[in-house]
Structures are given as C-alpha cells and as structure tokens.
C-alpha cells in the first residue's frame, strides 16, 4: 500500500484524475474495524449477494484499530445503493462511501518481471510512467510502476512485447480529492 511513496509523480498524475472509466466499475472506500475475519465478512457478503469484486485493497489506517478498504465493484446488473447499504450493515464496517472518479485520486502499484534484453527500451517505457527498475539479471528486469490504473493498463500493454513473465498489480486505492465534497458522515473515507 506504500507504492505511491518514493516515486516521482508527474504533474499530470497528481492532478485530479478524470480519465475515462469503464462504465460499470464503481469505487467504494470503507473504513472497517481491524478485526479477525472482517475481510471474510466482506468477501462473503459480495459473494452471497451476487456482487462482483473487480479489485480489493486493504491495509491499516494511520490508526491501527481500523483498516481502509478500497473495493472496485463491477456493478453490471447490480444496484449501487444496495452494495453500499448491505456493506454498511456489517457490524465491523464503520462507514462506506462511493468515490466518484471525477472527485478522486486513484493509484495502483504494479510489479512486473519483464524481458529486458534491451534494458534501455524497457526503462524508456516505464520512465514515462514514473516507474523504476528494481532488479536486473540474465536479460530480465523487475520493474515497479505506480500510476492511475488506466495509465497502468497502457504501461502494461507497452511492456507486453518485451515479455511479461510475471505480473502483479495491487488493485486500485483511491482518496477523495481535497476540493471534493464530503458525502459521508462519521469517519472520513
């Protein structure tokens, strides 16, 4: 969850991002009690209510009693309000709010092991996205890129011709932009 730290973000990436979203993906941020089984409760709720998780990122907040969960949901055939209301019924969920892409900053971290016979070409690609080479040996490199998920998709496509041997993405995290209205009561999500 610390992927954004230590990377140099371009001015474009630090701006409020309003890149086109896939129309059926919605982002929810939930503050939950950092207790045994909370993730299972949320995953179980999604499964039994037929909600489709696209990505999920969980880590403790500044207050270790709580965790912040960013859930990206494919809401195709699902009522967005139902998702929020059902999640809010879980006793360990303190609050839940939907983050609209136009009001939010989103990031995702990618680690990839790529073919790097031409390391300079790989470096050229990832430096466009503020990425870095973490390791290299025997014609392969491990690169790290943190960016808006849509930009990460593009970066991934550009890396593919080099040979994407292992790809791990974290799923997106998001924060409400400083100038956006606060919709939720209680703790700020």
């Amino acid at each position: 969850m610390s992927g954004a730290q230590g990377t140099n973000l371009s001015p474009e990436e630090t701006a409020v991002v309003s890149l086109p979203q896939e129309p059926d993906l919605h982002i929810f941020a939930a503050i939950v009690e950092n207790k045994f089984g909370v993730l299972a409760r949320i995953a179980g709720l999604f499964s039994r209510r037929g909600f489709n998780i696209f990505s999920l990122a969980v880590a403790p907040t500044a207050d270790p009693e709580y965790s912040r969960i960013t859930i990206v949901v494919d809401v195709h055939n699902t009522d967005v309000n139902q998702i929020a209301k059902q999640l809010d019924k879980l006793v360990n969920v303190i609050n839940i709010s939907e983050l609209h892409p136009s009001d939010s900053l989103e990031r995702e971290l990618m680690l990839a092991r790529v073919g790097a016979v031409d390391l300079e070409a790989v470096t050229d690609v990832i430096s466009e996205y503020g990425g870095e080479v973490l390791d290299q040996a025997d014609g392969e490199a491990i690169v790290s890129v943190s960016a808006h998920p849509d930009r990460l998709d593009r970066c991934e496509r550009q890396l593919r011709p080099f040979g994407l041997h292992v790809l791990q993405r974290t799923g997106r995290i998001a924060l409400r932009a400083l100038d956006a209205d606060e919709p939720a009561v209680g703790m700020t999500a």
Binding site: D79, N81, K85, Q86, K89
Partner: peptide, 8 residues
C-alpha cells in the same frame, strides 16, 4: 428499520 430493504 433496515435501509437496505428500500429499493431491494
């Protein structure tokens, strides 16, 4: 009393 019933 359960808001999730509204609109379900």
């Amino acid at each position: 009393i359960d808001p999730a019933e509204h609109g379900k």
